[in-house]
C-alpha cells in the first residue's frame, strides 16, 4: 500500500466519522441526503461480496466491515431514530436516484472485467459510487447554507477520491502491468463531480466565511 492509497482510505474513514459525529452531536441530519447514504450502503454491500469468498488482509476486511456497518447505521438513524429523522430535509432530497441505480447496473452489464455475478456487481458498485454524491450535492445547493460538519464531510469525501487517483497514477508508474480502466475512469468522473463544490469550499475557507453554494 502506498501513501496516497492510505491517505485516501483515511480521508474516507474520516468523512464517515465526521458525518456520524454531526448526527450524534447535533441529533440532526439536516443537510444530509438520505438518498446518497442509501446509495453508499448499496455500493458497499455489492462491492464487498468478496468478504465471503476472498481474504486479502485484516486491514482490508476491517475497513470493509466498517464501511458497510457505518453506512447502514447512518441510513438507520435517518429513517428510524426518533429525534434524528425529524430533521431530515425530505422536501429538498428529491433526486430520482433509482435512475442512477438502473443506469449503473445497465453499464455494469455492458462493461465489466469478467461476466460473473460478483464481477458485474463489483463494476455496478464502482459506477454507482461515482454518481452517489449527486443527491447530496443537489441537496446542498438547494438548501444554500451548508453547516460546517456537513461541508467537511463532503470535502473529505472528495479528498478521498483525489487521493485514489494519485494512488493509481503512482501504481501505474511503479507497478508493471498496472491498469484500472473501470475504477480509474469512474474515479475521474466521480472526482470531477466535486470540482464545483471544492471551488466554493476553498473560497469560503480563504475568506474565512460560511460555505454557501450558489443556487
Amino acid at each position: 500500500m502506498n501513501v496516497f492509497r492510505l491517505a485516501g482510505d483515511m480521508t474516507h474513514l474520516l468523512s464517515i466519522l465526521l458525518l456520524l459525529l454531526k448526527i450524534y452531536a447535533t441529533k440532526s441530519c439536516s443537510g444530509v441526503s438520505r438518498k446518497t447514504q442509501e446509495l453508499y450502503a448499496i455500493v458497499f454491500i455489492f462491492r464487498y461480496l468478496d468478504l465471503f469468498t476472498d481474504f486479502i488482509s485484516v486491514y482490508n476486511t476491517f475497513m470493509k466491515v466498517v464501511f458497510i456497518a457505518s453506512s447502514l447505521a447512518i441510513v438507520w438513524c435517518m429513517r428510524f431514530h426518533p429525534v434524528v429523522r425529524r430533521s431530515y430535509d425530505r422536501e429538498l432530497d428529491t433526486f430520482r436516484y433509482f435512475f442512477l441505480v438502473g443506469a449503473s447496473f445497465a453499464l455494469a452489464l455492458i462493461w465489466h472485467e469478467k461476466f460473473s455475478v460478483q464481477e458485474v456487481f463489483w463494476a455496478f458498485s464502482i459506477y454507482l459510487e461515482a454518481v452517489a454524491i449527486l443527491p447530496q450535492l443537489v441537496l446542498l445547493q438547494r438548501s444554500g447554507n451548508v453547516d460546517n460538519l456537513t461541508g467537511q464531510y463532503v470535502f473529505f469525501l472528495g479528498a478521498y477520491r483525489a487521493f485514489y487517483i494519485l494512488n493509481w497514477i503512482y501504481r501505474y508508474l511503479t507497478e508493471p502491468r498496472f491498469t484500472r480502466w473501470i475504477a480509474g475512469t469512474s474515479g475521474v468522473v466521480q472526482t470531477a463531480l466535486y470540482a464545483d463544490f471544492f471551488y466554493y469550499y476553498f473560497i469560503s475557507w480563504k475568506n474565512n466565511s460560511k460555505l454557501k453554494l450558489p443556487a
Binding site: D9, H12, D50, S57, N60, R177, A183
Partner: peptide
C-alpha cells in the same frame, strides 16, 4: 490474469 489484484482496493 490481473483481474484478482484489483480487489485489494476498497
Amino acid at each position: 490474469d490481473d483481474v484478482d489484484d484489483t480487489k485489494d482496493e476498497l
